[in-house]
Design a protein around this nucleic acid. Structure first.
Length: 588
RNA sequence: GCUGGAUUAGCUCAGUUGGUAGAGCAGCGGUCUUGUAAACCGCAGGCCGUCGGUUCGAGUCCGACAUCCAGCUCCA
């Protein structure tokens, strides 16, 4: 495809780049259409995104755009495409560029010029009457925009800063062809079926009530999944040599003052009075772990001390941020705190990162990693930070893990590695985290006796792999579309008698499975076998159905139908042995 | 918290210009005794999210609040 670069030349670009150019140009054409329909509108940023584009618009006083207005905007965009306007480009010196934008009322664009590199060329693209400050490249004629659709309207702060004015963000999708657009829409529809909130309701995994927004209720089926995951977690903590602890959910104000949370995190903490003293429900488990560390003298020989805790935390998240199981106000972190000597940082960050990536491999999650380094306003010595950052980097590099470097984005108390997973619609959620902490050991005056008898300060490594059981089970639900591997499935086998005549035999088989420790249910209803299968497949999403009729009862065997919908005759004992092996190996 | 939208039966949704609510599935009761993705008949089920306002009259119009959805901000 031919594209127009900002030096005025026209050239070919690679197909994968072309899609991006089309999407970015769609943003310009949408802005032009909006400007025609709402002459007082002005614009913020309008980039291409993964599947489309958006533009942030400052609408004239009193005007608003809702989804009802999309048809009119799309129609105007189509008109612009039909007009087949030519894209042109020009460059202006900084002052003139600013003057041009100011003159056109584009104050956000003018402001943006101040943020640009002083040596940067300021270039513009225009099609018809519309002019936009932009580095391009763009399509050469508006007719190259063949398939697009506006999808959503929302608010977004100028420069993503909550102190700034909120603009109206209009999102669209765009593809090189109508077929690709339709395919994408179909894919989206499919993806929505995996949504853990929908599946969670269908499978009765969890629920929410108006009486407790953001506080999940685990229903019997969800509890089964949670317990199975918890068993896996316990096994992994044992395998990695952690000691498991549990710290209290409510602790006194003095503790949170020592940790610094009372001053810095108070808006997110639930507080209560006990005997007229202030207490807080823990939003994190670290201060409790510090008290355990401090409960007796520690030697350098004791380190690392690795304390794991399935810690029940409560945080007053803003209600607009709540999102199914992904963002709740009450959750159980798969937390751990490692108290280490400075010379142990690399070794145990590596071990921790290995543990976390083992989880993701177990479930087949793609993930990406971010490393955040020292921010401007931080505590701890230059030397500590260097050692800590080097330790994190070394750990990632020794494992061959690719990562995004977020310079200056670490916590004030230490650098961190975050692991992010994608949900069914491609939104990313932080699950795993490894954070080094200089602050809490200092605040709590943690010490160990070194080999020379001197008192030294340990470094604390906070880590979580699932992030929280809630978030992770949400992820697992979407990953498997509810079809959990047998070891995690709330219901592992459903026994379906073909008719009343096979009921006794079905009960017998069900009892044998239950005795073997398998999660089983016998569907004794007077329904046709097709009906029972439909429900077992579509709602229960059960790994194995045993279809038992008079044939099986007479032969003393079973018909097993698995998720591939193949049915085979088996001996019950052989099946029990197979499924128990599958469960114990945690396959799938 | 912010911007926009939604809220009708357990679930998924209809409900015309304002005239006191409907369907399918699920549930319950019957009939059928069932062989691999929905048998048939009947019954019951609603403070139309909550509160207030406009109106002779509100599921419908207006306002506040609550919850949910998309996004922003923030975060596991």
């Amino acid at each position: 495809m031919k594209v127009l670069f900002n030096d005025g030349t026209v050239g070919e670009c690679a197909p994968e780049e072309a899609v991006h150019v089309i999407r970015h140009s769609a943003a310009h054409i949408m802005a032009q259409a909006i400007k025609r329909l709402y002459p007082g509108a002005h614009f913020g940023y309008g980039p291409a995104t993964d599947n489309g584009f958006y533009y942030d618009v400052d609408l004239p006083e009193g005007a608003k755009i809702s989804e009802d207005d999309f048809p009119a905007i799309e129609a105007e965009m189509k008109k612009i495409v039909k007009e087949n306007l030519k894209f042109t480009t020009f460059e202006l010196p900084r002052d003139e560029a600013k003057a041009l934008m100011a003159e056109r009322g584009e104050l956000y664009k003018a402001e943006h010029i101040d943020d640009l590199d002083p040596d940067a060329r300021i270039t513009f693209f225009s099609q018809g009457e519309y002019i936009d400050m932009c580095v391009g490249p763009h399509i050469t004629y508006t007719k190259a925009l063949k398939a697009f659709k506006l999808t959503a309207v929302s608010g977004a702060y100028w420069k993503n800063d909550a102190h700034n004015k909120m603009l109206t963000r209009i999102n669209g999708i765009a593809f090189p062809s109508k077929e690709e657009l339709d395919a994408h829409l179909a894919l989206l529809e499919e993806a929505k079926k995996r949504d853990h909130r929908k599946i969670g309701q269908e499978m009765e995994l969890f629920m929410f009530a108006d009486e407790g927004p953001g506080f999940p209720f685990w229903l019997p089926n969800g509890m089964r999944v949670k317990n199975a995951l918890m068993d896996y977690w316990h096994d992994m903590q044992d395998a990695y040599g952690y000691d498991e602890v549990q710290t209290p959910v409510i602790l006194s104000r003095t503790l949170w003052e020592t940790s610094g949370h009372w001053d810095h995190y108070k808006d997110n903490m639930y507080t209560t009075l006990i005997d007229d003293e202030d207490y807080a429900v823990k939003p994190m488990n670290c201060p409790g772990a510090c008290l355990i560390y401090k409960s007796r003298p520690r030697s350098y020989r004791d380190l690392p001390l690795k304390l794991a805790e399935a810690g029940l935390d409560h945080r007053h998240e803003m209600r607009g941020a709540l999102h199914g199981l992904f963002r709740v106000r009450s959750f159980t972190q798969d937390d751990a705190h490692l108290f280490v000597r400075p010379d142990q940082i690399t070794e145990f960050v590596t071990e921790t990162a290995q543990l976390i990536t083992t989880y993701y491999e177990q479930f087949g999650f793609p993930y990406h990693v971010e490393l955040s380094t020292r921010p401007e306003d931080s505590m701890g010595s230059e030397e500590d930070w260097e050692v800590a950052e080097a330790g994190l980097k070394e750990a990632l590099e020794s494992m061959g893990v690719d990562y995004i470097l977020n310079e200056g984005d670490g916590a004030f108390y230490g650098p961190k590695i975050d692991f992010h997973l994608n949900d069914c619609l491609g939104r990313t959620w932080q699950c795993g985290t490894i954070q080094l902490d200089f602050q809490l050991p200092q605040n709590f005056e943690l010490e160990y006796v070194a080999s020379d008898g001197s008192k030294r300060r340990p470094i604390m490594i906070h880590r979580a792999g699932f992030g929280s059981f809630e978030r992770f089970i949400g992820m697992l639900t979407e990953q498997y579309a509810g079809k959990f591997p047998t070891w995690l499935a709330p219901l592992q086998v459903k026994v379906l008698p073909v008719s009343e005549k096979a009921r006794a035999y079905a009960r017998e088989v069900g009892a044998a499975l239950r005795k073997a420790g398998i999660r089983v249910k016998v569907d004794e209803r007077d329904e046709k076998i097709g009906y029972k299968i439909r429900e077992a497949r579509g709602i229960d999403r059960v790994p194995y159905m045993l279809i038992l009729g008079e044939k099986e009862a007479e032969a003393g065997n079973i018909s097993v139908r698995d998720r591939s919908n193949e049915t085979v005759q088996k001996d019950l004992d052989a099946f029990i042995e197979e499924i128990l092996r599958e469960i114990s190996l945690r396959e799938g």
